[in-house]
Write a protein that binds this DNA or RNA. Structure first.
Lengths: 207, 207
DNA sequence: GTTTAATTTAAACAAGTGTTTAAATTTGCT
DNA sequence: AGCAAATTTAAACACTTGTTTAAATTAAAC
């Protein structure tokens, strides 16, 4: 599904407001004003406010799909783990606020139907890391008894925690600007997650 | 601050609705109906809907404070880490839905003022783990170059990820009921986090 | 028992919500 | 150019929102 220019204007406006205020406290009039269009255009193009959210998910979620192309050529090793994690964090960090918004909205029971594309994304990304880890275990490169689902949860959770507690963590870590925070995520935090997972995969008495 | 019986009725009703629907999409009339009180009582006792949220934070957040009493008598060791993590997860898992709600609401920029008590909680809990880890590093029990803030983020994030993706993870892990999910968190997930942190603290080339 | 204060109620308030309508305008096509 | 379809508009719709009001009821104090 593709969107025309006016639809994209609306989606961009919605993105800005959704990610800072959440879905419920953003009105269609707010979105219309931000996008410089008439209120009725939102219903004209997306049917309803919920339809807009639906389209928003469709529109943005592909950005968070991990590209497995490059990884498929690599031999199974700790370096491959490093590379994969780097790709993961980069993909999610490129649209930080939006990822947080999607994760929050799809966690509310009321919006379970809308979270289906998000579920698809999670399955895809989980299978990417699972394949690599299971292959490494099979080849004896990584220690057994490692649960890929738990490792994946740990990685995603650590990243998400940085999204949801930005104000708190910026202060704790002495980071001045939002840009620096993004850089911190792509360097120090990425390295931390890499270290953690490698520590687990080489930890003998693991689990 | 303490609350009378009627106020507690309202808070319990709000808790139920907030945690499943979020703050914005829960109306004061919904809460009043659920609590079997007149709508005006909410404004009478809490001033406003925002005031209710404020009181809700005050009311529930103390439950998530880690009790450091027992830990203070323990010698610094990996066992102490295990014990601390167990206490952490137990405290948060005892009111899972509510912790998720608090974390989500205070992550929205609009509600930063209201999240101050939550910030206090995070500082308290972070300092608990920081103290133990730093002590261990100083004594040479744990490997240096470990950042307590990052380890704390990892632990909290992993737990939160389990709250926010319950539907997805229940399916992935083949867990049938909500109760079993809670049990999984207090056993397998707790053990995983313990293992991960111990792996990090004993990982030589760490960071 | 009377009076004062606290509680509870139903009704109304004004503002905001998502959505629809029907007319106006623009666009694309022959 | 003329016609039909698509787009855009302002206005209205019906409904919900949080909050307030003023009267009614209950509780507490003397």
């Amino acid at each position: 599904m593709s969107f025309n220019e006016k639809q994209t204007d609306i989606l961009l406006a919605a993105e800005k407001l959704f990610s800072t205020q959440g879905f419920d406290s953003t009105s269609v009039r707010d979105i219309a004003t931000e996008a410089n269009v008439n209120v009725a255009m939102i219903n004209y193009y997306f049917g309803s406010k919920d339809g807009l959210l639906d389209s928003f998910f469709e529109w943005r979620i592909p950005d968070f799909m991990i590209d497995t192309e490059e990884l498929s050529f690599m031999e199974c090793s700790l370096e491959k783990i490093d590379k994969m994690i780097e790709k993961y964090i980069k993909a999610m960090n490129s649209h930080r606020e939006i990822y947080r918004f999607i994760a929050i909205e799809s966690s509310l029971k009321r919006r379970m139907l809308l979270s289906e594309p998000f579920s698809k994304l999670k399955i895809h990304n989980l299978s990417t890391i699972s394949t690599i880890i299971n292959e490494g275990i099979a080849k004896g490169v990584f220690s057994a008894n490692n649960n890929p689902t738990l490792i994946h949860s740990m990685m995603m959770g650590t990243f998400m925690n940085f999204q949801m507690n930005q104000v708190f963590l910026q202060e704790q870590l002495g980071i001045e600007s939002d840009d620096d925070y993004g850089i911190y995520i792509e360097t120090t935090l990425t390295h931390f997650i890499q270290t953690t997972i490698k520590a687990l995969l080489t930890y003998e008495i693991s689990m």
